[in-house]
Design a protein around this nucleic acid. Structure first.
Length: 552
RNA sequence: UGCCCAAUAGUAUAAUGGUAGUACAACAGAUUUUGGUUCUGUCUGUCUAAGUUCGAAUCUUGGUUGGGCAACCA
């Protein structure tokens, strides 16, 4: 069977480069700035960069773009490395732009000597004003005419710490009238008397992104430098620096960043959610961060699969979060252990079952996995079922429990509702049923077929657990198109804590790395706050629910 | 009143001058001791106008629409 290979535009470029001998092998890089945690948008870039290298027999470097000491921190370095590893990727080298500071400084001197860079004493306001606007050309100032010798001396003095922050900058001398704003004498170096997370106080001048990124790519011999669309206008500058410096010609290619419905994807906004306590931290299970999703119970496979399914192109996109949910369900359906947990309990008394008697029923760990084995579940006279699985006055097509109606208790017996018990307020407190002894699972001679099967937990043996349910963090699909402050759209019901759900005893042995399907309620993972005394589970995602959908 | 990028179904993404396909979503049905899973089927699309061509989603030009470009951020 001939395989259909359809390539994205970057794969096409790489195949062409490899086919015509431009490169013998490829080298990509993932270049995060260590000033925040990685999110699902970064996962797209990670899967792309590492995936390309894997598919075409190349390598990928991890390079921290740490050129702005005031916002960067080793806490972020550590989390980024952990997230990439967890996603399942291995970098060839761990590099830092700060490793290249001396080299970059020499590159700057090269430009000065070629008359292509100058020290400017203007303030940031003056520089901005002199830049003009997209529709009006900028103007050249007096510092632009400085001699090479003077620039060399001034730049050395900048490095030596003779000036205060903002007093001077080094700029490229390109074209103040360029229709591309980035070519209007862009800043190369600025003075920052700040402590750097790796170089400490060795430097008081730091290169700007445009004078660090492309050169770092070149130093590492990166063949394909892949970034997002907003860097398209930087490409002429990227190429200009490499050409003027005469160094290895890395090439930049741009793809459209990921946008997801009902969430935000900028580090600035995510940081705000953390700092202003809208969420409990970067790894809050509602966050679209890798660490948040991991805590929520997402699997690395599901994230990789998602990134594969969304594709890579140059058009702005807004991906339905439903696709992410599909991917995680697809994985968890095959791997999650089935367990029964009643989230919103209603007591059921089996009036014809002997008091004090307990029997053990067995149930498969995973019907999708023939080798998954079984577990034992205690059954007795008093049980809990979900409130929503009983209706005193059933609606049409409701085939759960109702007076006179029969249902199967999963892996146990068929029961029939005989009566209800109510308190003074008229609220149902107990449902009384009879069971059919000949209907036991695996040994059913009753000949009765019921449409509904319910999950249940023995009241005598139930284990208490806290269950945390999550909904989307925002109420609107497209936060980028929403007017005003994005925080106005936060969903107040994004977290529901059920402090006292009833779980079957097997869950006492729950493990962090295992995933569970609480029958009919969704997929769950144990939270990091869980203890043997107090189990805590996060709902990763609900099951598909055609019944609930039909009710709307 | 500049420059750059993009436009295929509800959402994404293929088709690289020759049958518009796939996934998710939606809808209908079958199976089911999870209203889950699985299976089957259905619906919906080339922004627009002109041109090139035997033939255009694809090439050209104009238009329209969306996005980006001025931080001592990356």
């Amino acid at each position: 069977m001939a395989e259909e290979k359809s390539l994205n535009f970057i794969e096409e470029i790489i195949e062409a480069d490899l086919a015509n001998g431009k490169y013998a092998s490829i080298l990509t890089r993932f270049p995060p700035e260590p000033n925040g945690y990685l999110h699902i948008g970064h996962a797209k870039s990670i899967c792309l960069n590492f995936g390309l290298a894997i598919n075409y027999g190349g390598k990928t470097n991890l390079r921290f773009d740490d050129t702005n000491p005031v916002t960067e921190d080793t806490e972020y370095v550590d989390s980024i490395k952990e997230d990439i590893k967890w996603l399942g990727f291995t970098w060839a080298n761990e590099f830092y732009a700060s490793d290249y500071f001396e080299q970059l400084y020499q590159f700057a001197i090269t430009l000065i000597k070629k008359g292509l860079a100058y020290v400017d004493d203007s303030s940031s306001e003056q520089i901005a004003a002199q830049k003009g606007t997209p529709t009006q050309p900028g103007i050249e100032n007096e510092y632009r005419a400085r001699t090479i010798e003077e620039n060399l001396q001034l730049f050395a003095d900048m490095r030596a710490g003779k000036y205060k922050d903002g007093e001077k900058v080094l700029r490229a001398k390109i074209d103040m009238a360029s229709p591309n704003m980035h070519l209007r004498d862009p800043l190369l170096y600025r003075i920052k008397h700040a402590h750097h997370h790796r170089t400490g106080d060795a430097w008081c001048i730091y290169p700007m992104y445009d004078f660090a990124h492309g050169q770092s790519d070149s130093i590492e011999n990166i063949t394909h430098s892949i970034c997002t669309l907003e860097f398209i206008p930087h490409r002429p500058l990227y190429d200009w620096c490499i050409e003027q410096l005469g160094i290895f010609p890395s090439h930049q290619y741009e793809f459209a960043r990921l946008n997801l419905t009902y969430t935000v994807m900028s580090k600035r906004r995510l940081l705000q959610l953390v700092n202003e306590k809208y969420v409990s931290g970067w790894d809050d299970p509602r966050m679209p961060t890798i660490s948040g999703m991991r805590r929520r119970g997402f699997t690395a496979w599901s994230i990789r699969e998602f990134c594969d399914k969304i594709g890579v192109a140059k058009r702005e996109n807004l991906i339905d979060v439903g696709l992410l949910e599909f991917c995680v369900r697809e994985d968890l359906n095959k791997t999650a252990l089935r367990r029964m947990v009643v989230l919103d309990p209603l007591k059921v008394v089996i009036t014809n079952y002997p008091e004090g008697q307990t029997e053990i029923v067995t149930s498969e760990n995973n019907p999708e996995d023939a080798d998954g084995g079984t577990r034992e579940i205690p059954f007795c006279r008093e049980l809990y079922i979900e409130q929503e699985d009983f209706m005193e006055v059933p609606s049409k097509k409701y085939f759960r429990l109702a007076p006179g109606q029969m249902v199967r208790l999963k892996s146990a017996y068929i029961i029939k509702c005989e009566s209800v018990v109510k308190d003074a307020a008229g609220t149902i407190t107990e449902v009384h049923c009879v069971y059919l002894p000949e209907s036991k699972s695996g040994d059913d001679t009753s000949g009765i077929h019921v449409k509904g099967t319910l999950h249940w937990v023995s009241a005598l043996h139930a284990v208490h657990a806290e269950v945390r349910l999550y909904d989307r963090l925002f109420k609107v699909e497209n936060l980028n198109a929403a007017e005003g402050d994005f925080k106005d759209y936060i969903n107040p019901d994004s977290l529901t804590i059920l402090p006292a759900a009833y779980a079957e005893p097997a869950l006492k042995a729950a493990k962090f790395e295992e995933r569970y399907q609480f029958l009919r309620k969704g997929y769950f993972a144990m939270d990091k706050e869980s203890t043997p005394e107090k189990l805590v589970f996060n709902r990763t995602v609900t099951l598909r629910d055609n019944w609930a959908k039909a009710q709307k």
